[in-house]
Amino acid sequence: MAYSLTVNGETRLIDMPGDTPLLWVLRDGLHLTGTKYGCGVAACGACSVHVDGQAVRSCQTLLEDAANAEVTTIEGLGTPENLHAIQAAWLEHQVAQCGYCQSGQIMQAAALLAETPQPTDAEIDEAMGGNLCRCGTYPRIRAAVHSAAATLKG
């Protein structure tokens, strides 16, 4: 059976088994490849997306459970021509090295700032602790989250 899913504001019909993780629906079904596969067990955060505004691990969210929900991926957060404030801050601080974890880091940070507009270092650490970066971009992520918070405050 086909499932209906709203991704980045667009309603899509997905003809994949209901127990397919959202990650693979996005990547192999919809070819939205900004969301990455890192571990498959919710241990690294590379696959983070927003489902109804909450940051979730798409590798652990089944298609049948996300049906009818609003999904936002990195492609929906902002585009190269129209960056979200968090992406602009990542650019300003030149955060990414290999970049593979950064979609997940940015989606996690976006959820943090939606909830806690002016986070402390400790709150950033707490919120971002589930997002692994093997290149070691943490110092710049911290700085970029603060920058984005300042921008969003206006």
């Binding site: 969301t35 990195i74 492609e75 190269p80 990542w90 970049g99």
Partner: peptide, 10 residues
């Protein structure tokens, strides 16, 4: 490579 990596387009 930065713009592509912060927008998921790399």
């Amino acid at each position: 490579d930065m713009l592509g990596k912060v927008t998921g387009t790399a």
